[in-house]
Design a protein around this nucleic acid. Sequence first.
DNA 1: GGGCAGATGCGAACTGTTTA
DNA 2: TAAACAGTTCGCATCTGCCC
Length: 280
Amino acid sequence: MRRSLQHAWGTELIQGHNLSIADDELVRLTNTWSIVQTYYVAYHATQALWVALGHDRPTAHPKTQSLFVDLWATRNLHLPPLTLGVGATGATNLPAGVTVEAVHNWTWCDSTTCWSLAAKALQSTRKERLRERQSSKRDEKQADNRKAWKEDEAAKIAKGRTPRKVPKFSRPQLTSSEKATIATSTRTYGLIDYLYRLRVRANYVDASIFTDGPDDQFVSTILAENLVTLSSVVLMGHEHRIGVLVGSATLLDWMDKFIAKNALPSDAVIRERRARYPII
DNA sequence: GGGCAGATGCGAACTGTTTA
DNA sequence: TAAACAGTTCGCATCTGCCC
């Protein structure tokens, strides 16, 4: 648990340090990696909380992402953005009085559109998964048909029939009930899933979203600052729950030792959080 | 007009069903 | 078993929407 927390704190520390030294030119490149770092903060923090709850540390990304959602988004909690989720029935844990509207992804983000945009980000991430599952299900049905044919053929040959030519097995379509089953059985998606999607994109697919645009340097800087804030918010939520489980004195002791050992700068975000945590 | 993720449209290819 | 047809999926191109 402590090791996972230290991984999360260390990642947050490097993320904040990169921002502090990034000039106008570097901030775009910094954002490419800041996305990755924000994801890993959530990843390690989730694992630390899961171990604090008495379980073995998960080692796979999908399992950790699923646990993050179980720990935050599928509970009746209102600590957005940690608790915001999108499932088969739509967005969950929206603030009271907020409804999600059908907004275009270019819609300007303000206090009235931010929830709809956030839900759209999660919903389109979940939609990618639905497409993958539907494709896999078709492959599975194709394999089942091939297997059934082979078994039938083997039985016929055993009875003395002449072997037939192996037919071409097409990828069967899914029935509407199979599609509905996939839709309802696909889990709720949350913040960590969207961070993972951005992480994969920034690392492996196309980093230009961060390196080339937006034109306005100011916007890239705001993004960089918001990512650092997001990491801190994610850690704050997990630290609070871990503190309740292990005792806040223990948690604060670990934080103090981490701060002392790593000679953190005076403006390190973890220092600010540490200074504000009460002993429960 | 530029910027671009997601929506939409379209043709090609594929799949399922019926019929011979 | 193959052909014909209808329906579905896939991949690509184009459009949409909002703000500066």
